[in-house]
Design a protein around this nucleic acid. Structure first.
Length: 202
DNA sequence: GCGACAG
DNA sequence: ATCTTGTCGC
């Protein structure tokens, strides 16, 4: 028992929120996938209205309510949460993935598309190559190459999971694209639902 | 004081 | 986050 994960995770849930232009409408998606195949098994959506503005460093306060609602709609609880954003790689060391992990009690980590306050050296070109994500002299995560020759993603621990394991899962869940399937599918689903969902009522 | 700044 | 078409390449 080196990490907080009881054993090899069988399922993961990818989370993401899509916003509608010129309105407060948002759609949150929670997608359950099998780790072994990286394929979608279940999914849940929630439509809502944002009341909190986006402020760098406070993203969790804006998205967590919707993500929790979407998670509750999944028929089964996932073994791990894959979030679109940061975990510990945050100015206050408590990003979105930390909030969701603590609130749900589930292991969680974040996979962000861009660096925030942290710095990093370019990883080798190979898939799986990584370099430490640094905030001053502190290692807060990893700049991880999920696809050879493609820009790296930024992995950081959120709750009850180690950085090495989070990185391994990210690679395993990103067999073809830069963004791992959990988060990628959640993005696709929430975006599609937003377009198909009537602006008001039914 | 100014710029940068997850999504 | 979102606004946005085609195009080049495997």
């Amino acid at each position: 028992m080196r990490s907080g994960l009881p054993g090899a995770p069988q399922t993961v849930a990818g989370l993401d929120v899509s916003y509608e232009v010129g309105s407060d409408r948002v759609v949150a998606a929670a997608v359950l996938l099998d780790v072994a195949t990286a394929r979608v098994r279940e999914s849940a959506l929630v439509v809502g209205k944002v009341t909190v503005p986006y402020v760098p460093g406070l993203l969790a306060f804006r998205e967590v309510p919707f993500l929790l609602a979407a998670l509750e709609r999944l028929p089964v609880s996932p073994d791990v949460l894959v979030c679109d954003g940061y975990g510990i790689a945050h100015p206050r060391r408590f990003g979105l993935a930390c909030h969701l992990g603590v609130l749900t009690g589930l292991p969680a980590f974040g996979v962000a598309k861009t660096a925030f306050t942290a710095r990093f050296d370019e990883p080798e070109r190979a898939r799986g190559a990584w370099t430490p994500l640094l905030d001053g002299d502190e290692t807060v995560g990893r700049a991880l190459r999920t696809q050879a020759g493609v820009k790296p993603v930024f992995v950081s621990v959120g709750h009850r999971v180690g950085l090495a394991e989070a990185s391994d899962l990210t690679i395993a869940l990103a067999p073809r694209y830069r963004i791992p399937e959990p988060t990628r599918q959640a993005d696709l689903l929430s975006r599609a639902a937003l377009r198909e969902s009537p602006p008001t009522t039914g």
